[in-house]
Design a protein around this nucleic acid. Sequence first.
DNA 1: TGTACATCAGTGAACGCGCGTTCACTGATGTAC
DNA 2: TGTACATCAGTGAACGCGCGTTCACTGATGTAC
Lengths: 230, 230
Amino acid sequence: MATSSVKRVTMARMNGRTASDELPNTGAREERKQRTRAALLDSALDLLEERSFAALSLREVARGAGVVPTAFYRHFPSLEALGLALIDDSFRTLRAMVRAARREPVAEQVIRSSVDVLVRHVHDHRSHFRFVVRERSSGVPAVRNAIRTEIRLFASELATDLARFPYLRDWSTEDLTMMAGLLVNAMVATTESLLDAAPDSPAAESEIRRLAEKQLRLVALGVLQWRSEG
Amino acid sequence: MATSSVKRVTMARMNGRTASDELPNTGAREERKQRTRAALLDSALDLLEERSFAALSLREVARGAGVVPTAFYRHFPSLEALGLALIDDSFRTLRAMVRAARREPVAEQVIRSSVDVLVRHVHDHRSHFRFVVRERSSGVPAVRNAIRTEIRLFASELATDLARFPYLRDWSTEDLTMMAGLLVNAMVATTESLLDAAPDSPAAESEIRRLAEKQLRLVALGVLQWRSEG
DNA sequence: TGTACATCAGTGAACGCGCGTTCACTGATGTAC
DNA sequence: TGTACATCAGTGAACGCGCGTTCACTGATGTAC
């Protein structure tokens, strides 16, 4: 194959894209492909409402997405790869939640507003949170480990955030990490309660919210008394 | 069939048992049956080290126990039934742990000795604790619900125990339950850390123990400041 | 104690089923000129 | 713009496999007398 001709072809393609009024990869074909990919992910999330990831089958997921089993391979090399993509999506949701929490003013109401952000996000993205919370401790090793890594990352970011509070300014890193771990545990437990409760039950939701706030206030009281040996 | 003859047979059996020097159901046949049953449970626990319960197959479990698949049905009507039996065994282990903890003197060292009991029991019964912790949030509904019921029971027993502490004597039931929930969360999280760590690594174990003690001390400080509205 | 019969844990063949994966294909969309 | 060719998402048949479950059986253990 002649190098010059390859170059010409590449440039022609690039010019074609630049000249067109569409972004790269936004043709009808690519769009349809992305829709099928999304349908596969949605199908999996649907099935995960009543089954664990380890119990999913590729054929079920494809069936739910309205495609033939072999079409699955056009999008993911394996079910496990789809699982990792679900983790990406789920933690994108979670990071959006953290950004929302950071926008809240850091006031005396910090506990209330943090719990509020959590409850609201779990409400709006049940299936993502359910996936993460359930597969965190059980299931396929690759999926489990990816989730744990993300949660550890999340906890250490939380520790960094905590270091900005006046009380906590001179805590040791270890103590901050310990406290962040405690808070993440509480958040996960609260998320589990929310997922167990009937969806769209404001009564159950506000009861859980009240309990979560109490737990965080109890921890906060401990924090005020703590003498970090950092 | 003649009623009188049936009665005679039944009584003869009862007399036979009473007269023999063996307890009922302790013949060679029954003993062998119990050994096979135990082998099936052990086989399942073995497989559960790297797989979730939902991913077990009856044939695998039977294979691991050294019996033919159909023999499984002589002991359990389904894999799910075996799962429920595993829960029984696991919580028997956990209740033994709680009894051990209650025998410890309630002193200033109560946190240290509680963590100590937990670490020791997880060390000695890894597979039971792993099963409970993993299947608690994922997996087969029947198994998951049975575990949650047991954990809720455990938490409310803990709340009762807590009510005996002087500081906590006039806390409201709700606050005691809330605090027990917090402690159970911490214990579960600690158990997860222990199961993640390399088995038989005293260094990892004592590091986790140290962290767990810190978390409990932090909570205890909060408790001392708490004003229950009970 | 000895004998004849009952019980029942474990066997092994057989079944139909859904699974993951392969392969050659189709036909709509995209590209070069 | 029109034509000829390339790309590639989705198809459908086919495969071998391990699965749960059924069934009639075997032979050691237990029981009656």
